[in-house]
């Protein structure tokens, strides 16, 4: 037993000192160095990609917000609690494809879109009625944006073509056709609608 104990003790010193050494390097030096470099090289990105504000802190261009005004683009459904697009409670519904609660939620979202835009009989783009993974998705598909263009134009009393043109101006397409998805940032789009540069 004594021999075992001495082997244990002779292993204990390297165990503790290697742990402390690597903890200081990877747990302090590394993240602090990256923080310093990121703030130096890309200060806006490191701080959350905030939009220039009119007054107060502007929105983050990476984090979505919830909209219900018929004159604005609506974001994807978010199931964060207690409010949608809660930036400190990210997450999805985790409902299975077969869950009755999922079907009911999608049906209710389709109905809400139809109520706000009774003349529009087109099928609803799927991303507009399904909850995102993060609950903070800043984007909608181009299909989802154009689907809403008629409603927005009517609510604002403008020509639909100007709304479609605004979508096209903000559209982001996949690089080489396969890296990325056709989409548009809802926060940016609604800021543009409101005339914020």
């Amino acid at each position: 037993m004594n021999a075992r104990l001495s082997v244990f003790l002779s292993t204990l010193r390297p165990a503790l000192s290697v742990l402390v050494l690597l903890t200081l390097i990877t747990g302090l030096a590394y993240p602090l160095a990256v923080t310093g470099l990121a703030r130096l090289l890309w200060p806006e990105a490191a701080a959350g990609s905030l939009a220039p504000a009119q007054h107060g802190a502007g929105a983050s261009l990476l984090i979505g917000q919830s909209f219900s005004d018929p004159g604005r683009f609506w974001s994807r459904p978010s199931v964060t609690a207690p409010v949608p697009y809660n930036g400190v409670a990210s997450g999805g519904s985790n409902l299975g494809a077969n869950a009755p609660a999922l079907r009911e939620a999608v049906a209710a979202r389709v109905a809400a879109l139809r109520t706000a835009d009774p003349d529009n009989a087109l099928p609803v783009p799927v991303d507009l009625v399904t909850a995102s993974a993060s609950g903070l998705d800043p984007d909608i598909s181009l299909a989802a944006a154009h689907y809403q263009a008629g409603r927005i134009a009517r609510a604002r009393g403008v020509d639909r073509r100007s709304v479609d043109a605004l979508i096209d101006a903000h559209a982001r397409l996949p690089w080489l056709g396969f890296i990325g998805e056709p989409r548009v940032n809802v926060v940016l789009l609604n800021r543009a609608l409101d005339g914020v540069r």
Binding site: G92, A97, P125, V126, D137, D139, S141, A143, E181, P182
Partner: peptide, 15 residues
């Protein structure tokens, strides 16, 4: 389509 990914988008991100 050229305007959307389509498919099962529940629990997925548009990007």
């Amino acid at each position: 389509s050229a305007l959307q990914a389509g498919g099962n988008m529940e629990g997925k991100e548009v990007r």
